[in-house]
Every structure is written in structure tokens, then in C-alpha cells.
Nucleic acid binder design. Structure first.
Lengths: 114, 114
DNA sequence: TCTTTATACCTTTCGCTGCAAGGTATACAT
DNA sequence: ATGTATACCTTGCAGCGAAAGGTATAAAGA
């Protein structure tokens, strides 16, 4: 029950946000995230797949299996609930980064102009 | 050696950045951070003190003890090395948030204007 | 033909961060 | 006397996310 660190849940945020553009399968998701962040952030398979399963079991995503040239792909799509969660996560993220921006950009130095 | 999560080290960043304005003792630091972030972020004692010790042992901070009306205060100040680390952490933070901003704000939807 | 590379899925293991909670001690107000 | 605020510190643990290992198909290259 420990209060999860205020910094956690970014992979989840990225996953949900990326799926907002349309259903994707895990492997595709990973690449999409890497691409959308200009290679700055790579979410590995050990993060993506467990996260997808967890999100689905929480009702944030729904999946359907599709057979494409012999390979099985599991496509995930946002549910209404997932969209709501996403909205909350985005808001939280913006709140946090704004706060940190304040602290690191901010206020502190009138020292520069004596 | 595991690659630490790309999201870690924010408390460290906030601590170093806050100490840039001048030396502080732990308790004061905590309050300063809370205040600088408009109460959005609270770094607890269980985070601050271990972090201060770690940073000092890495040479990022130097401390001096001061006796103020019967209570001992341990004041911490940035070293040159600490300043450099801070610069790096800030840069890294900005890089990350920019990337996430791209992913969550970004690119994806020309979908909004059909 | 055989093996490497890329795709696609999944799980187990574990390091590390940061939080909660507990512990000590002084000063001051009630 | 007892509580509240200050000031320091440590231990224990939850949980996140990374590494690494495992299965299987298809296509390219040797």
C-alpha cells in the first residue's frame, strides 16, 4: 500500500497514450514509443508485456488475437476506462513536471541580479 | 550495474538544485523543496538523509556541523563536482521530459482535425 | 541446407529507489 | 508534565522496471 513514488507509472502512461492512436500489438508498441520519443526512451519487452497484461486485467485495455502470416499478434486497444486513466496520468505528469520545472528553473535566484 | 530506470534520481536532482542557492541542513532542505514545488512534491526524511549521506560520500556535497541553540545542524553545500553532476542531471531531465512531452502531446494526431 | 536475423510472444529474477515507520534528543509552549 | 516542533538518523519493505532467458515462425544469407 506504500505510496508509490511520485515518479512511477511513466511506462504505463506512454503505453496508454500510444494506444490512443489506434490498436497495436506489443512489439509494434515498443517501436512506436521509441520512435515517438525520438529514440530517447526505450521500453523493453520485460516492461511492455507485463504492463499490457496488467492493464488488460484492470480493464484499461482489451485485446484480440490476430493471425498474420503464421505469427500470432495480440492487438491491444484502449477501453473507455483506459482513456480516463490516461487523462488522469497525463494530468498528474504535467503537474509533476511543472512542479519540478519550478524548482529547477525557478524562483531561487534573484542572486543573479544583485 | 543494471541500467537504472530512466525516471530515477529526481530526489537527487531536487536536492542538488536546491542546495545551489546556498548551504542548508536536511530538515530545511525538505521544507525548501516542498515550498519550491508549491507543495506538489514532498521528499521525506527517509529519502533526504540517506541521499545526503550518499551524495557526500561521492564528493558531491561537503558538510559542516553547526550548533544552533543546543541543536546540532548539519549544513550541506555543493562541491564543484556536485555542480557538474547537477548540470548533467538537469540536462538529462530536460531531455527526458521533452521526449515524453513529444509522445504525449505530440505528433500523433492530425487525427483531431479531420 | 543450415544458420542467422528479425519478428512476436512470454516469464522469471533481481537490483534499486524511495517510502513508511520507528528511534533519539533538544527547546519551547501549554 | 506533556505536547509540539525541530533536527538528526536507520531499518525494512513494496514495487517498479531492467536483464535475461525461453518459445516459435519466417525470411534472408552462407
Amino acid at each position: 500500500m506504500t505510496n508509490p513514488s511520485f515518479m512511477n507509472g511513466v511506462p504505463e502512461l506512454l503505453i496508454l497514450r500510444t494506444l490512443e492512436s489506434g490498436e497495436m500489438y506489443g512489439y509494434e508498441l515498443m517501436q512506436a514509443i521509441r520512435s515517438r520519443t525520438n529514440q530517447a526512451i526505450s521500453i523493453g519487452e520485460g516492461v511492455v508485456y507485463p504492463a499490457l497484461h496488467a492493464l488488460e486485467s484492470e480493464g484499461m485495455l482489451k485485446s484480440r488475437r490476430k493471425l498474420v502470416s503464421g505469427r500470432t499478434r495480440v492487438y491491444y486497444a484502449l477501453t473507455r476506462k483506459g482513456e480516463k486513466r490516461l487523462t488522469g496520468l497525463v494530468r498528474h505528469w504535467q503537474h509533476i513536471t511543472e512542479a519540478i520545472g519550478l524548482a529547477i528553473g525557478g524562483t531561487a535566484h534573484a542572486a543573479t541580479t544583485p
